[in-house]
Design a protein around this nucleic acid. Sequence first.
DNA 1: GAGTTTGAAACT
DNA 2: CAGTTTCAAACTC
Length: 708
Amino acid sequence: MDVVSPELNSLLPDEIMDTEAIAMEEELPAEHLAAPPQSEPEPPQVPMETELPEIVSLCPATTSMQITSTSTDAQCSTSSGTQLLLAPSGLISGTTTSAKTTGPAVTQNLPKISSVTVPANHQLIINKVSGAPAAVGKSPVSYFSSQFTKKPAVSTAGPMITKLIITKALNNKGLSSPASVAPVVTGRVVTQSTPVTPPRNLTIGETVSTVPQNTSGNSKVAISPLKSPSKLTVVSMASQSPNSPQKSVTLPLSVALGQQILTVQQSAATSPAKAGTCQSTAQTVKPVQTVGGVGTSQFKTIIPLTTPPNVQQIQVPGSRFHYVRLVTATTGSSTAQSSGSTNTNPSIQPAKPVMMNAAVRMSVPIVSAQTIKQVVPKPLTSAAQVVTTSQTPQRLIMPATHLPQIQPNLTSLPPGTVLAPAHGSGNMGYAVLPAPYVTQIPQPAFVTLTSSSTFSTATPIQTQARLSLNGLSASEAASRQRKPCNCTRSQCLKLYCDCFANGEFCNNCNCVNCFNNLDHESERLKAIKACLDRNPVAFKPKIGKGKQGESDRRHSKGCNCKKSGCLKNYCECYEAKIMCSSMCKCMGCKNFEESPERKTLMHLADAAEVRVQQQTAAKTKLSSQISDLLTRTTPAITSGGGKLPYTFATKEVAEATCDCLLEQAEQAELTNQPQAVAERLILEEFGRCLRRIISFAGKAKTDCPINC
DNA sequence: GAGTTTGAAACT
DNA sequence: CAGTTTCAAACTC
């Protein structure tokens, strides 16, 4: 599968990138769109992902549109009749049957879609379908359905841009394990389009095993068009014919989630011939986990959930992530959720049962956008295994119960919002995790994605990608992890709480009576809903990212400072390192371009930063000098079997040591350390110098046994 | 670390 | 929508 490089992706038109510019649901007339050319024969298999010469965006105003992919190289195939159901919000689900299969909660009231990538040789027809799934929301739901229709392949040259989508049809029905969960991964897919070139770097190994049951491939893909993720790409729509034996698919998918890029590879015990095709199969889903990487990186964990038969979701956290949803097709009769029942669009067919079982791990280190690195295979053995490692910011996907109520506001949820199926009830439930203020909060993150089928021994491939986040380098992002909150009264369920506001569970915080955790999911959901009721964009990033870079960043709402002059961190603009704008209602603002106070502050900050860098460099240099001197100095004095240690304390070494001590003293002074602390630091530094000298002395002794 | 200041969020 | 209160972070001592 070919994916477009991040650079190319960044060049995409804003219309495509900016989901806000695309209003789907609300702006569209209620009337149905023309029925998709359902009659048009579908090839048994449809390329799962294609290279598109151009990016297709779904325009809100259009009642009916047809998107055609002219690219070749389709790698994934879907069975005929495969449809994409596009939730207004940009969630996209594919199904071969009807709107029934569409998870109501997912497709409902999600107004924006940025773009869709259609399998090569196929046309994507998008229709608006009115009618609310009975079980779903309070208000009638209108949504769009799309259908892939085969189209003549057109060869294309040069890099193509493909937008994200990872899809998997899931269905628990017929599976032995009711608790199985279908993992859903979503994100922007970025692939490099060289047809021949295998996907690089990030890979999600996904093994899929088919089930003999009636599991014609139905795959739904729910994609959140959240702001940043504006680029949405439907990558895979796979369906497998019911009769086809177990087919496996090795399917590389590149997925860029927000700024994060990762390549997804599906592999199944399949014949090579089948490679490159995406097949939806009955699968049981393994718990999905995202594992955070190292050090400061942020990792997220998805906890295995019991899910309702047809809905599986996974969220890939991380700021610019969109929630992706893998929806299991339901058996036509039972589940049928409502969306189908009310559907007036004749083109929509009942969904076929699909089951899926997979474990997914994602590893997406965020670093440089241009850099995509390494793939490290890491098999997952236990379906129930929940992996998580590191320390800090964790993002958990957890079961929730009342999401339908929140659904209408899904579009307001920030990237990274987590939707997870609820336990028990047949109703769709989600845990909603709003994402961070993207532009404000660095998200050092390593997300590991791995998916493997339960029945397959194929080794999942773990990949990593490094992408820049909000213009921050990896080190910056890592160094600016969110602070633990100290909430005492809000139960961490109000926007006062940074954790909550950023869509994260409290972890290692100092809060009191915290409800922002797995144990209080219902309260948390209510709180989220309340926040969204008050402000539909409560979880959206406050600082918009300018098209041209940082200079265009501005506070969406503006500050309201009165006493701080907007030159303290009380001011959200100043805190975000942006200048106040006309949006602000501040008084006595000094946070503007020509402000002398601001310039002074900036200079001081710069000077301080330079100072720190100089000190670090000086210390490093001195250390290296000491080491160098110790290695080069060869005193003539020897004793017995070797040189006496003190003979290494030459004048140069002594001077360098003194420099180190002075440097340490200076640092202590600069940081206003008490004298006692300063003395201790100096002594410790001296100890380190001595150890180094002794170490080299010992080394020299052993290194030159002849002379010594 | 305790107390104060500040402005966003929440409430009326 | 404006005024007030609540809240937690930022800041000061």
